[in-house]
């Protein structure tokens, strides 16, 4: 049975409007539209939509290139062909992923470890299953880009940097005392900060690696230092930036070069502390000593 002319025409209305039909088909449709008010009305409504799109071109302009560039991993020195840097970046990401994964697994409570070791069940919340162990290389790279962006913002506009991280990772502004109910431990800084620092804000942030307690501290000169207390070892937070191990007080610290200052991470009991925006190893040593558990 031949299709109803209206049905056949309506099936091809978009193709007709978008110039995707041959001459003969076009003529057939034109002829039908001139005789069928219902199909013509539908065609007119399609045309009007096109007009609506043209009249509503967003007035905003795309973000500047610099904002994209700031999220890209630091460029490597030209030590080899382009595929070499790509491959080594991927290898670094995978190595970092393994470190994070092992750290997370080892520090997770047993019931959580058992759950992690099981294949994820159908319908399980994707965010939950991804959060700890299963952060794949792509997520790891995305996390590193976010931290890269955060670090860049932190030096130019600390308040914006904090808003950025809180928005990105569902941060919740809470006092150090209130944080205990969310992270399951009393943050070390709830006993007070070392002299010369005051607490500007504190929050709990659902980072992809773990739930962190974050304290934004102001030095007396108005500059910012951020302290994270967390369960993982922060191995992959800063991508392939230069890093070195150093002894600060009685702790082994990993020092990471940022653009204008450093980050440092060290173990304190079963958790880790990461300081972002430290000036030098001397300041890290002072923080290590001041934030001791006992």
């Amino acid at each position: 049975m031949a299709p109803h002319p209206c049905q056949s025409v309506q099936d091809q209305l978009s193709a007709y409007l978008d110039g995707e039909l041959g001459t003969a088909e076009r003529h057939q449709i034109e002829e039908h539209l001139s005789q069928c008010p219902a199909c013509d009305a539908e065609w007119q409504s399609f045309r009007q939509l096109g007009q609506l799109f043209r009249e509503s071109v967003p007035a905003e302009t795309p973000p500047p290139w610099e904002s994209v560039e700031s999220r890209m991993l630091p460029r490597r020195l030209p030590a080899g062909p382009w595929w070499w840097s790509t491959t080594t970046a991927a290898a670094a990401a995978i190595a970092a992923l393994l470190l994070v994964a092992v750290g997370f697994w080892a520090s997770a409570p047993k019931n959580q470890r058992d759950r992690i070791a099981q294949p994820s069940e159908a319908g399980q919340d994707e965010e939950t299953s991804m959060a700890g162990m299963a952060m794949n290389a792509e997520h790891m790279l995305e996390f590193q880009r976010t931290m890269n962006d955060y670090v860049a913002k932190l030096s130019s506009d600390p308040d914006q940097a904090e808003r950025f991280l809180l928005t990105k990772y569902d941060g919740q502004a809470v006092s150090p005392d209130q944080a205990e109910a969310l992270v399951g431990y009393q943050p070390l800084i709830s006993r007070g900060l070392p002299g010369g620092y005051e607490l500007a804000s504190s929050s709990v942030v659902e980072m992809p690696c773990c739930t962190c307690f974050k304290a934004v501290c102001r030095r007396s000169d108005g500059s910012t230092l951020v302290l994270f207390e967390h369960d993982d070892d922060a191995a992959g937070w800063f991508g392939d930036r230069n890093r070195s191990m150093a002894t600060c007080g009685d702790k082994d610290c990993c020092l990471i070069e940022l653009d204008s200052n450093i980050a440092a991470t060290w173990k304190e009991g079963s958790r880790s502390i990461t300081a972002v925006g430290a000036r030098d190893q001397g300041e890290v040593t002072m923080l290590v000593n001041a934030l001791k558990r006992s």
Binding site: V57, P58, E60, P62, P63, V68, R71, M72, E142, R145
Partner: peptide
Amino acid sequence: FRLLVRMVGRQEGEDLTQQVYVQAFT
């Protein structure tokens, strides 16, 4: 950018535009 704004709104569109290019260049 326009495609992303249409799909997710302006603010998210900006963020996603950056992500798309970072991913594309990677």
